[in-house]
Structure formats: structure tokens, C-alpha cells
Design a protein around this nucleic acid. Structure first.
Lengths: 231, 231
DNA sequence: TTCATAGTTCGATGATAGCCGAAGCATCGA
DNA sequence: TCGATGCTTCGGCTATCATCGAACTATGAA
């Protein structure tokens, strides 16, 4: 006695304005905390909590716990696709669509997270590495591929096998504070940041306590050649 | 500041079970009348009219007036695409259960769809007929086999050749509202339902307007002998 | 430990919207 | 012209569900 998938239940989840605002806020790919999503939707945290539970039960979003925060992201690219399809229909129906504009301080571009690269460029780097199949990511775990090892040796003179550490993983996904997506941490992430500094591609900002990383003109170019955005 | 409001409006349209049933019924590409859609959704024509007006206002369906009928079809292939995307998400989330309003379990078991058998038994019957190679189904079209003709004559005293009709197919797949699978429509489907009634295997519920079909004890037994589930 | 913050659960409330009966149009066939 | 059928509008009923205040749990910081 099979029955078709229950579309209406899923659609009803998207059909609530508050939940929809949360989902559209997540369409950038970034992960957001429950409180932020509440603010985004203009509702109290209690109400948001209820909504988020329903969205999670419906398989539309996935939580990632980090400290006392609970980050949520879209559970699957397909979800974003469906939302985009709905946007298309809504636009055709004559309903206006307002573009949400992210306002970006300089810190978001590139900064130090402990000892590795974070910010826009950090996220971009990990994305590119995945696209080039230098690493494999399954959930939280990241693994360097054989091709990745060759790449590190040839392009950055990094011996991946020397990076093993008793208490620290070579690769680790770290949730980016500004981008709310993962960038690369672990001994490899640190080693790469070190190499960027040695090659004078980038340098930490002189201001004491600053976490900003300034890339040189040439450095940004070389970086883009290895980890260029968007293909 | 709140993002484009009206993806949620569109989603809410799909989010209602009754409307969703109408839309899925239209996913075959066929245009259906308001009454037919009301039957598919298991609601009264008044309610259906209200729903259809909303779906039309939302740009999901388009009407085509023809005499006193009002045919509706999906306004765009994109709509079907979004619905399919939602099906994918719903399936992955494990929500395979139909939530909607057959408040009446009897209605799910066996009921009249226009003039032929629908519901659990209707779907089971077509399944069994395919299994016994009484019919061949390719896509939407269903064809009675030679063995099917013999079966009809011997078991149900139905002359298949006499069922041809200038404007109605002998066999036709009709999407079952509660089961979301096909049952048998067309002149053959109607003739079989007539025969079941004549043989006193089944009778339409006495309540005026009811679509429930009640099978007698003996009738259900004989029916199962011919079209038993699971073989 | 104590305090602060993030998030959740519970209960009550209120608005939305689906639903149907009855009645009103509109179209077709005779 | 009449009656039958398909569909819509109107009004009232009801159930659902989003919402928030208050209280509770969990994690981190001092």
C-alpha cells in the first residue's frame, strides 16, 4: 500500500511567512544560529524554536551544534533548488521579490581563525579544494585525497604526511563566523596559512590584536590561480 | 527588510492538502474540470471553487472555459517541476503518508470515481489485471489483451468489443486520489462496476451523494478470487 | 560556585482559513 | 421556454496553528 510522497506537508512548512523568511535567509548557503533566524523572521526565539523544530523534522534544515549555539543550514542543495523554483513562480505571478543585501565589513574578506585562514577567502579555498577533489568531506570529517597530497607538495611545498599530530586532525571543518560556512582548519589549514605568509602572499595586519589578513596584489592573484572562485 | 514575501504565499497554496491533491491530479498534463478536481480532492464543489480561485490568482493553474465546464491545467511546466522537487524532498524526508482528508476509511477502501471503482480495491484491481496480463499499460494508455477479452467474457460476461465508444476510451488510467496510483477508468471500468452491482457484489452507499461503495461479504470474496492482492 | 547567554518547553490566546449548506448565476439540451 | 447541470458567492461554524509570556535546561564565563 504505497502512497505518494506528501508534498503538501513540506509545502506547508515553506508556506508560513516566518519559516519562509528563515529558509530564504539560509539560501546563501551560510549557517545561521537560532537567534539570528528569529531576528531574520521577526519573531521571538520561542516561536522560532518551534518553527526550526518543524523544519528539521521535515528534513529541510539540519542543525550543527557548536558550543551553546545551534547553527542551522539547508539540509540539501535540492531544498535551495525548490525554493528558487518557487521564487520563479512567485515572480511570474507578479509578486515582487526584494533582494536581501548583505553588508560586509573588511574583516569578512580574510582573517585569522586561531592559526588558519578564515573569512570569504577561507571559505572559497575549501570550496575550491572540494571542487578540485583535493579533499573529501563527509559531514564534519575532511580527508585529504591522494591528488590533494600531490597538489600540496607541488604547489605549496607542503608534506602532508608530516602534518600528522597526536591530538589534532590534519583536516577539520571549522564553521566560519562571518560566512557561516566551513573553512579548513587542522594542521593542514595552519600549514597552508604559514606558507601563504612565507611566500609573502599575505600578512597579518600590523594593528595589535587585529585578526585581519591582508593579501598582497600578487598574493591574491596567485591564491586565485590555485583556489579561484566559481570555476 | 523582510525578504520577498510571496514565495511563502505560493508555497502555502501548495501546502493545503486539498489544493495539493488537485495539483498532483493535474500533473499528468491533462486538464480537468472543477468538479473532477473537487472529486479528486474529496471536497465539495463550493470548497473546490474557492481553492481553484486561489490557485489561479497565484498563477499556478490556468482556466479554460468550455461550455458550462471550466477546465483547469497547470499554467506552466515549471509548476510541475517544483511539485516534483517537493516530491523528492518529501520522499527523502520519509513522509510517504497521505495526510489529507479521507476522513472516512470506507471512502479509501472502495468508492465511485465518476462511474468506475476507485480506492484501495480499485487500485488493487488494476494491479492484479496487469499482473495477470489482462491489460498492457504503456505510459498513460491501457490496452486490453486477447486474454483480457476472454477473461471478461468468461468471468464477468462482458463483451469487450461492444464497449467501444466514439468519444471515450475503453481503458484509461485514472489517478487514484487516496492511493496516488492508477485505477481503471474508461468504458471497461464502468462496465465492470456495473457488473459488480448487478451481481450484488457491491452497491453504492444509500446515503445520497455518498461516493462510498459497500462490498457484500460474498462480493468481496469473489472479487478477491479474481483480483486478489499480492497473488 | 554564581551569573549570563542560547535555546527549549508549556500553556493560553487569537486570528486565519478550510469547510459546507443554501442560494444565485450561467450554460446547455429539448 | 423550461429544467438540468456546472460552477460560484455568501454566511456561519470550527479546527488548526502561529504567537508570546513564563518557566526550564544547557553551556560557557568569572
Amino acid at each position: 500500500m504505497k502512497a505518494g510522497p506528501d508534498i503538501s506537508r513540506i509545502a506547508a512548512l515553506v508556506g508560513d511567512p516566518a519559516r519562509c523568511n528563515m529558509l530564504t535567509a539560509l539560501m546563501t548557503g551560510r549557517a545561521l544560529t537560532a537567534s539570528e533566524l528569529a531576528q531574520e523572521a521577526g519573531i521571538t526565539p520561542q516561536t522560532a524554536s518551534s518553527h526550526l523544530a518543524k523544519l528539521e523534522a521535515g528534513g529541510l534544515i539540519e542543525p550543527e551544534k557548536q558550543g551553546r549555539h545551534r547553527y542551522y543550514r539547508l539540509s540539501d542543495p535540492d531544498v535551495a533548488d525548490v525554493l528558487e523554483g518557487l521564487q520563479g513562480i512567485a515572480a511570474r505571478a507578479g509578486h515582487m521579490r526584494v533582494r536581501t543585501g548583505p553588508k560586509d565589513p573588511a574583516l569578512r574578506h580574510a582573517r585569522i581563525c586561531y592559526d588558519h585562514l578564515a573569512g570569504d577567502l577561507g571559505v572559497q579555498m575549501l570550496d575550491s579544494m572540494k571542487r578540485q577533489k583535493l579533499v573529501r568531506q563527509s559531514k564534519q570529517a575532511i580527508e585529504l585525497t591522494g591528488e590533494g597530497k600531490r597538489f600540496m607538495a607541488e604547489e605549496l611545498q607542503i608534506d602532508a604526511d608530516a602534518l600528522t599530530h597526536p591530538r589534532r586532525p590534519v583536516c577539520k571543518a571549522c564553521l566560519d563566523w562571518s560566512e557561516r560556512r566551513h573553512h579548513l582548519a587542522g594542521t593542514l589549514g595552519a600549514a597552508m596559512m604559514d606558507r601563504f605568509t612565507e611566500l609573502k602572499w599575505a600578512a597579518r595586519d600590523a594593528t595589535p590584536g587585529s585578526r585581519v589578513v591582508n593579501f598582497s596584489r600578487n598574493g591574491e592573484k596567485r591564491f586565485a590561480a590555485l583556489f579561484g572562485a566559481g570555476e
